[in-house]
Nucleic acid binder design. Structure first.
Lengths: 233, 233
DNA sequence: ACCTGAACACCGTTCAAGT
DNA sequence: ACCTGAACACCGTTCAAGT
């Protein structure tokens, strides 16, 4: 009759167990089966119990995104930025393949979660440390983002930025402390540090550079007789 | 009292008007607002009336995908495959930007619609006509697919292919008639014509070639001092 | 032929109540 | 502190009925 060890008594829910069960449910039964009620049933609990651990379903989805990113391998640091980046991309891809719902969920989130920004910051920092200019790092992030994630990431939350300039300033300062490389790279793109929050960048020019890079690469492979001869131009 | 011209009488619904209203609703209020009931209200009708024109919501979403693709500009044919392809990609992008929900919906569809396959077939045909090998065209479609659609397309419907070999054969023949360039390209990838339906291709090798192309391009730009000097290597 | 009303089995979420 | 029951405002969809 010890109250903490009754047989059949579940351990109390935590945010982590809820997220893990959500990921497992989406992996097993598909993202369309993930409802608060189904998730609760898997946890042996009633749907309303979940709301003590996650605010709502949106936050659940954001938490699942964070859980996926946490599975990425820690980055190697060999001193070769391109080789290191290549490994990170392949690791991210392996993780995404384990969670087929992830690309769709990522695409549906209105704003990047802290883990997304932290990952982006770490990738950007690696490229900057390798000597790439902030502008080229920015361009590279856009190119790789479309190719890897399969969607176009908005770094800054969508929706209008705070009206109050003081509040905007504070937001910037917090952002700069947490994601310095992302900020460096964002500033390189807009050339106007004060207007960064919510400013965005020249997507059209970036997109055109990306397709020109891919089309040039295809032309080069074609002229080299790929796949008959060699893979490298 | 002429029964066909009573004032205030709606014209009868058609599949096309339903789809147009669905696209307009998603454009204006966001895809999360698109419910059968809201859509019906916009059309001055009750939800159940829609089911005479579209089988269910899944088919509605597929129809919206088709409507978006129908907005792509007709392809130019200048004789330069790369320039023509560039224009098609830019046109597709302009269309996708007009419908911010489209990438997310495309990513959520389990199988490509006929219009998606027809577009893909036309793009593949242009590359083949430009002299690219089927294998390189295949690789190029994978690279560009992420850029255009914003996600990784599965050409063949997911789910198990038909068990009956005769039925599989028939499916192949229909596919070959409708999408010959796609079939050419798919065969180049798998090297096993009989195993094509549901076979897939070597995604890993394709993915690695894509990231190597992008990383090589970034290195080249870096060594050329981009953006200080020139854009082209 | 085309649309409707009532009904069913689901959703996410709130609130007051239980232990 | 943590969970539950009942309830609310929604979903997609079926079926028999209306005009």
């Amino acid at each position: 009759m010890t109250p903490t060890a009754l047989p059949g008594k579940r351990p109390p829910l935590t945010r982590a167990t809820v997220l893990a069960a959500a990921v497992a449910l989406a992996d097993t039964s598909g993202i369309e089966t993930l409802s608060m009620r189904n998730l609760a049933r898997d946890l042996g609990v009633v749907a309303m119990a979940l709301y003590k651990h996650i605010a709502n379903k949106e936050e659940l989805l954001d938490g699942m995104v964070e859980a996926v990113i946490a599975e990425f391998d820690p980055p190697a640091q060999t001193g070769d930025w391109a080789a290191d980046l290549r490994e990170r991309i392949l690791s991210a891809r392996r993780t995404m393949l384990r969670h087929p719902w992830a690309a769709q969920v990522f695409a549906g989130r209105p704003a990047p979660t802290p883990a997304v920004l932290a990952h982006l910051d770490s990738v950007a920092a690696g490229m900057l440390a390798g000597g790439l200019s902030p502008a080229l790092t920015h361009q590279g992030l856009h190119m790789l983002g479309s190719l890897i994630w399969g969607f176009h990431l908005e770094v800054f939350p969508s929706g209008p930025p705070p009206q109050d300039p003081a509040e905007r300033e504070e937001m910037m300062i917090g952002f700069a402390a947490a994601y310095p490389a992302v900020l460096t790279v964002a500033m390189a793109a807009s050339h106007d540090p004060a207007a960064i929050v919510g400013a965005g960048c020249d997507d059209q020019a970036e997109f055109e550079l990306t397709i020109d890079l891919v089309l040039d690469g295809l032309k080069r492979l074609h002229e080299a007789g790929w796949p008959a001869k060699s893979r490298k131009s």
